[in-house]
Design a protein around this nucleic acid. Structure first.
Length: 475
RNA sequence: GGCGGCAUAGCCAAGUGGUAAGGCGAGGGUCUGCAAAACCCUUAUCCCCCGGUUCGAAUCCGGGUGCCGCCUCCA
């Protein structure tokens, strides 16, 4: 596999540090509110990457933190007259609930910053010992000047950055670029005891502490949104490499930003498009499809129109899986690569072509996780299968094998839902559909159309097929 | 101003030297009582602009233009 690394700015061959185990850390949200749709992109990217690596036979340890101590959390707590910990707990749970709806599973470890204060303190102590950090009043700062290659990830010249940086009142930094590792407690703020007095962790340090704890220095992949490159990831590198004296991360994986077409997200105005609101309106697999349709590193258009489009795509895939399931009915589940039969038959030829598509699918993902190209192979497979179905080819056994092969592909992309059998159709719905069929036979089309409309109202679509009808749930 | 990225059909979007994937939408056809689903056909002589390298560039180089992100604890 080739994977782009934003530190070296090139695609490199990816070989895990630990043999058959892949170690990944992605920056999760700071939980001061409901997460917005943009937060879902790195989440989806990380889960799909995990599935891809697993499909290659690796075991994957994916760590995705939740930052539950932060200025904004404290501010919100004060505003609402409740402890910051309450705010954090509420929105951490909301985050888990919201992302659970995507059906991609949970990261292997989801550490909370407040549960790793000891590790954070130990890390800061090491940095102080090694001359990379200093105490200034109640605070502890990282000494940027002690880190000769500071700026290597963001490609910024330290001298340049100093121009814009500034020391705010109450801070006693040696350099404007120095950043807080530990912040002395102000009255009413949540605080922990430390060698430097009562206080709390600064922003970047928790990710260093937790990634090093769970994955160790030099782990494989560290991901997050591009906007985190500076200062967050730059600072993580400085801290972590300063503390351990070894390279921190092997591949930096940064996803592009969402370009909101309708409504610019403005945090100050508070009109943020939340993940929750998006999933209230659209199926999770549609949102996943939106993310998969563009390369993870590219900025992407996002809005109601692309979501609607993705709904159509999802329906297309659901339809082909539904047809395959019907055709394969009664047939035992099959392996996609079961020994090909007579290669002269149309079925065997189709299986050959689909096998080629599965290879192309994996090749696409092997090239820096090109999900858009991989998804195109699934659509290509769908078209070929539909054509075979329409031609009346495909015996039950072939259908079962085709379905198994396509299932593998959608599973890697986290689109299992498109293959899910629809929930059982309620009996009264079936009765209505049967009555409609009787009306059709009796050529009472007015009544038949009435029943079809009534079914549509209830969320079911009735499709006439040779020799009968079929009821499909449309929501 | 500095750093990084993006710019491909009506829309979304792959493609980084060999002659434009895929999806949505639109138009035509098949099937159907009508639909729906599905299938077939059509929909970029051309990849922001101007130069250059090359037998050959959307793809490489130089220069522009536009948009986005970061440089102020935003994925």
């Amino acid at each position: 596999m080739r994977l782009y690394d934003s530190l070296s700015q090139e695609k490199k061959d990816f070989v895990p540090r630990d043999g058959d185990r892949v170690t990944m850390y992605f920056c999760g949200p700071t939980v001061y509110n409901y997460v917005h749709v943009g937060n879902a992109r790195p989440y989806v990217v990380s889960m799909v990457a995990k599935r891809y690596f697993e499909s290659l036979g690796y075991s994957v340890t994916l760590v995705e933190n939740i930052t539950d101590i932060d200025d904004r959390i404290i501010t919100k707590g004060i505003k609402e007259g409740r402890p910051a910990a309450d705010v954090a707990a509420e929105f951490a749970q909301a985050y888990r609930d919201d992302t659970d709806r995507l059906g991609l599973g949970r990261p292997d470890v989801e550490p909370l910053a407040t549960e790793h204060v000891q590790e954070i303190i130990d890390l800061i102590a090491t940095l102080v010992e090694r001359g990379h950090a200093y105490q200034a009043g109640p605070d502890v700062y990282f000494d940027v000047r002690s880190s000769p290659d500071y700026g290597k990830l963001s490609k910024q010249q330290v001298a340049e950055m100093r121009h814009g940086a500034r020391i705010s009142v109450g801070e006693d930094k040696k350099d404007p670029l120095d950043f807080a590792l530990w912040k002395g407690a102000k009255p009413g703020e949540p605080a922990w005891d430390s060698p430097w007095g009562s206080g709390r962790p600064g922003w970047h340090i928790e990710c260093s502490a937790m990634s090093l704890k769970y994955l160790g220095a030099g782990f494989d992949i560290h991901g997050g949104g591009r906007d985190l490159i500076f200062p967050h990831h730059e600072n993580e590198i400085a801290q972590s490499e300063g503390a351990v004296g070894a390279p921190y991360v092997r591949f930096w994986m940064h996803n592009g930003m969402l370009n909101l077409s309708e409504q610019k997200m403005s945090k100050s105005v508070g009109n943020i498009l939340t993940l929750r609101a998006t999933l209230d309106k659209h199926r999770p697999e549609a949102l996943i499809a939106v993310f998969l349709a563009s390369h993870y590193r590219s900025p992407m258009e996002f809005g109601e129109d692309v979501l609607e489009e993705a709904e159509q795509q999802v329906d297309r895939l659901k339809n082909v899986f539904g047809e395959l399931a019907d055709r394969a009915a009664g047939c035992a589940p099959a392996a996609p690569d079961a020994a090909p039969g007579d290669s002269e038959t149309p079925d065997a030829a189709l299986l050959d072509r689909l096998g080629a598509r599965r290879h192309a699918f994996m090749d696409a993902l092997a090239d820096d996780l090109n999900t858009a190209a991989a998804l195109a192979e699934i659509f290509g497979a769908a078209r070929e299968v539909n054509a075979a179905l329409a031609a009346g080819d495909l015996d039950a056994g072939t259908a079962a094998r085709v379905r198994a092969g396509m299932l593998e592909m959608v599973h890697v992309l986290g689109l299992d839902a498109v293959a899910g059998g629809d929930a059982a159709i309620p009996e009264d719905v079936v009765c209505m559909a049967e009555e409609r069929q009787e009306c059709r036979v009796a050529r009472d089309f007015a009544r038949a159309d009435e029943l079809r409309a009534a079914l549509a109202e209830r969320g079911y679509e009735v499709r006439d097929v040779p020799g009968g009808f079929k009821v499909v749930c449309t929501r």
